[in-house]
């Protein structure tokens, strides 16, 4: 128990790092994921090909490998950024592939006639998607995106191995200070639960709110 009380600021710093990584990478993943889903259903072949390639590459690459690629690869092209930013990019890009597929599954639940009606009224592809299809897809997309973001919160632990402050990484200094490894990890687990259960709560709320219409 005293491992928590005596190292509250260290735990707090780690938790804050995990929260930051989750929120920033989550926002990036949502924005990019929705965009790529739009690419994958667009009438332009080049965009569809790009979208498919994006998802295939990122979904099938181990996240640790992706971290190496971003952290070691980008500096070779002269892109030098704080490790925290690199970690957000890697996590965001990786998660965007899963968000894209969840959104695409949601798009497929909207009856074809909805898009046809929108197009028959003269709406462009972007208008059809943003005004008619996506709002109706949202409801069925909320639960899988919730799961994806919870996975993201836990995946952010990998950033700790690349010297970014986050929750799991706090075990190293605590271990060196000789605290019980079991209790160290128990409090780390509690930290993750705080993040993931909060996410689950937000998504349950969203689901209830979007579920009313129709």
């Amino acid at each position: 128990m005293n491992v928590l009380t005596q190292n509250f600021s260290l735990y707090g710093k780690g938790l804050w790092g995990t929260v930051q990584l989750t929120l920033l990478a989550g926002a990036l993943a949502l924005a990019v994921g929705v965009l790529i889903a739009g690419f994958r259903v667009s009438p332009v072949k080049a965009l569809r090909v790009f979208g498919t390639a994006w998802v295939t590459v990122l979904r099938n690459t181990p996240l640790t490998l992706l971290f190496f690629a971003v952290l070691l690869g980008l500096p070779r092209f002269g892109v030098v950024l704080p490790f925290m930013v690199f970690a957000v990019l890697a996590l965001g890009a990786y998660t965007s592939a899963f968000v894209c597929e969840a959104v695409r599954a949601g798009i497929n639940t909207v009856p074809l006639g909805q898009g046809e009606a929108a197009r028959s009224l003269g709406m462009s592809f972007t208008q059809t998607l943003s005004l008619v299809v996506l709002p109706q897809a949202a409801r069925s997309v909320i639960p899988p995106i919730g799961s994806t973001l919870i996975a993201l919160a836990k995946n952010s632990a990998i950033a700790g191995s690349f010297s970014v402050d986050e929750l799991l990484g706090t075990y190293k200094p605590l271990n060196e200070l000789g605290y019980s490894i079991v209790w160290t990890f128990v409090w780390i687990a509690v930290g993750y639960l705080i993040v993931t259960l909060s996410l689950a709560g937000v998504f349950a709320l969203l689901e209830r709110k979007l579920g009313v219409a129709r």
């Binding site: 006639g113 909805q114 046809e116 009606a117 929108a118 003269g122 109706q136 219409a213 129709r214």
Partner: peptide, 14 residues
């Protein structure tokens, strides 16, 4: 410029 009415109405459900 060309209106279309469908068999299944296709009103925007939301």
């Amino acid at each position: 410029d060309v209106g279309m009415v469908f068999q299944s109405f296709n009103l925007f459900a939301h």
